[in-house]
């Protein structure tokens, strides 16, 4: 009986895959928020095959920890594969919470499951997500997402900081994610509500040039980087605190990201995490680190926690 059950679950070994698909195994801890190096290494491999026009077979079974922002990124990456008409097949995580998140993220809208994902028991959260090809700042959509989060446990005014953060993200992508001003860069947004913790998690991402490449980094700082005096993490911190100005060189521009940081420091939003190029910022504890592998694009994540009475 056991053997028969085992046989029903195909492994992503080459024998059961079309020879054109490259097998890739996801790490057990897949979290750009909490443990970015394994996650960015995984995404770098995916991006490499996508650029080469190569389909992949993803073995997601080992994934034990999956967080909403990484799930949003994964679904977006899979959508990029599909848009390039590349085949992706995949398994789902054995761990129930990770499987629920992955299934609800839209991942399997772009990935052919090797076996149907096992059912998930209980209410393990709700996700709302959207892609925008025009890359415009869309306040009506922002309102919809904020309403989605606010229809849960927190009163509406506390969601105004999320309205601000989400619009700033969209405006930043609109104005800075391409090499030239006014270029068009699609973005993705996802909100995940966890009924156990009452936490709403917002994820915003694009596959543009990344914050560090779009920032106005002067020659001196570039030299410091080369000499190892400064790291990308230092630069990201300076961009987020407004010490590095907007590339427009207009003193009244470039307040969006520093404004988000202030919002986080004042406790209006929690767990603000920014991943861009080869730097990772966990703003609340003030931890900035250089990544071993760069992330293609920019990811911004934050949470809304229930009110503490």
């Amino acid at each position: 009986m056991w053997k028969r059950f085992r046989r029903q679950e195909p492994s992503p070994a080459r024998s059961v895959l079309p020879s054109s698909l490259v097998p890739i195994t996801a790490p057990a801890r897949l979290s750009l928020r909490d443990d970015p190096d394994p996650a960015t290494a995984f995404f770098a491999v995916l991006e490499d095959y996508r650029r080469r026009g190569q389909g992949v077979a993803l073995d997601m079974r080992p994934v034990e920890q999956l967080t909403p922002e990484t799930c949003a990124m994964l679904a977006a990456v899979m959508e990029m594969f599909r848009r390039k008409k590349l085949i992706v097949r995949g398994t789902s995580p054995r761990a129930e919470a990770a499987r629920a998140l992955l299934v609800r993220s839209g991942f399997f809208e772009h990935v052919t499951p090797m076996v149907p994902p096992a059912p998930v028991r209980g209410d393990l959260g709700q996700i709302r997500r959207r892609r925008n090809d025009e890359g415009l700042a869309d306040p009506t959509l922002v309102d919809t997402f904020v309403n989605f989060a606010s229809s849960r446990s927190i009163s509406r005014p506390e969601h105004k900081p999320s309205y601000r953060c989400l619009l700033e993200c969209m405006a930043n992508t609109r104005n800075h994610a391409t090499e030239q001003f006014g270029g068009r860069q699609p973005w993705w947004v996802a909100v995940h509500f966890d009924p156990e913790t009452n936490i709403s998690a917002f994820s915003f991402l694009d596959f543009g040039v990344g914050i560090l490449k779009s920032a106005n980094i002067r020659m001196a700082r570039k030299l410091w980087l080369k000499l190892g005096i400064a790291t990308p993490a230092d630069l990201l911190r300076e961009v987020l605190t407004g010490e590095i100005p907007s590339r427009t060189e207009l003193p009244y521009r470039g307040r969006g990201l520093p404004g988000m940081v202030k919002t986080c420091r004042s406790g209006q939003v929690r767990r603000l995490v920014v991943v861009a190029n080869d730097a990772h910022a966990d703003v609340e504890p003030g931890v900035y680190r250089k990544l071993k592998k760069p992330l293609h694009g920019t990811l911004v994540y934050w949470e809304l926690h229930p009110r503490e009475n």
């Binding site: 415009l136 700042a137 869309d138 306040p139 009506t140 922002v142 309102d143 619009l167 700033e168 969209m170 405006a171 609109r174 104005n175 006014g182």
Partner: peptide, 16 residues
Amino acid sequence: FTRTPGARYRTDGPFS
């Protein structure tokens, strides 16, 4: 003017 104010410029999107 609007219930959902937008971003900076008209080119960024509606209700700027």
